[in-house]
Design a protein around this nucleic acid. Structure first.
Lengths: 247, 247
DNA sequence: CGGAAACTTGAGCAGAGTCAATAATTGTGG
DNA sequence: CCACAATTATTGACTCTGCTCAAGTTTCCG
């Protein structure tokens, strides 16, 4: 049985892991839910087969039914503007939850697209709501998750409104770095799942500018950039450039 | 008794009006809560004396206790960046709810400041949470409110990321216009509670640019601008400039 | 292996920022 | 209630950051 669990947890895309066994539960559902309650939550969560790069988890204007926790891989969420352009509104890494934009009008205002092979836990929202009525800490947790999303969005607003291209790129790299660190991964060496275009779109910059900034950082020995592989050579230098405290 | 109610509702800053009598309840607490439940909600809501221009409703890093519904007046919410600058993250008009940024970490990440004489209803959050456990539609309503805030923030992200100065200013004016309209006020003639500096800060522009854009709009006969008094002369023209559908 | 997509780098340009001077408005205390 | 200080708004001239367009290179994937 023990070996079975180990086998299960080994593959990140494995769809059979329960919340109790999930390495990410401390991020996804921090302590707030007790063990016995976790089982009830576990029952309502659906784990499908992995998405492949480019697959939609949901489209804009899809009816809203669920929110999703990323188990492995990376998802970007995008808004479609009137003139049909994309605006990347967020990158979601393992342990992070997306889809809460759909609650207000019962329709997703964003689309969500896998940037690489990605597996998610689907949390049917109406069942989650019911359960929240019985488990106060779960209700609280969801309020907090949504508030966190608001705070994150407002951080991005500030970044877009006040910071230069270099500052924006540095801030994003620091954010990804610290989110990796939280998942026990290297904070200094990682692979970007998103393209330069996605980064630029997210940060309100063009591809060219992102590329130039990365080259400059490399020239200054702040980063080592090898395609999507990023190594932070000087965390202090990067933080100094960003002039922001990154969550 | 009837005359008493009328007298109460006449002054917008009157602190004695109950939710059941409030003209704004359809915006603030849309239908979702039933009449008998409204009384229970009403009991937990606190109505203080009005804030004056420049007063803080709460400061950044204040412990989070409540969210607030604007009854009359206008509130701006701001984030303080690392280097001590302000970033305006939202304007809140009567019927709108603010303070939900504080839920995630139990501390306000924003400050909230009155832009004119303003009265608010204070909704103690922990009591609201308890009540939500008993009134499913209230829980649902709060999830929706928070989701709405996320959607609004993401609209601003898109605006900052993709739109020119003229488009941003036009979009803000259209937003205020339609929010006034929702409150049965004129959609074409209104007074801006915020300074040019606040507008610029919110839209990621300098004061000078905001001023220039407004002058240009006036020259094009799209607006009539008299200090803070705005008259929209050509709604079509303004929408054309904005190239966005405004909620 | 070959075509498409993604990325890099350069040159020139423009939209919005900066700096500065003036005007208008608001608030305040005598 | 008026006068003066302080704040807020307008307008102009100049600058600069990041965008556009373009060409070339690398990477990805069928």
């Amino acid at each position: 049985m023990t070996s079975n669990v180990i086998a299960k947890t080994r593959c990140h895309h494995n769809s059979q892991i329960s919340c109790g066994d999930c390495r990410l539960s401390s991020i996804c559902l921090p302590i707030s839910v007790h063990v016995d309650e976790l089982d009830r939550l576990d029952e309502i969560i659906q784990r499908g087969r992995p998405l492949h790069k480019g697959d939609h988890l949901y489209h804009a204007n899809d009816p809203f039914t669920s929110v999703y926790a990323v188990r492995s891989g990376t998802i970007k969420s995008i808004r479609i503007t009137n003139d049909g352009e994309e605006q990347v509104t967020g990158f979601y890494l393992p342990g992070e939850i997306l889809g809460m934009d759909g609650i207000a009008r019962n329709v997703h205002t964003n689309a969500a697209i896998a940037l690489e092979t990605t597996s998610v836990c689907e949390i049917p929202f109406s069942r989650m709501e019911e359960l929240s009525l019985k488990i106060p800490s779960l209700q609280r947790h969801f309020f907090q998750l949504m508030s966190q999303e608001i705070t994150t969005d407002q951080q991005l607003i500030t970044l877009l409104s006040k910071n230069s291209a270099e500052e924006r790129v540095a801030a994003l790299l620091l954010s990804i770095s610290s989110r990796n660190h939280r998942r026990q991964l290297s904070a200094s060496l990682f692979r970007l799942a998103m393209s330069r275009a996605d980064i630029g779109n997210y940060l309100g910059l063009t591809v060219e500018t992102v590329s130039r900034v990365l080259s400059r950082f490399q020239k200054q020995d702040v980063l080592k950039v090898d395609k999507k592989e990023i190594e932070i050579l000087s965390l202090g230098g990067l933080k100094k450039i960003a002039r922001v405290d990154v969550s």
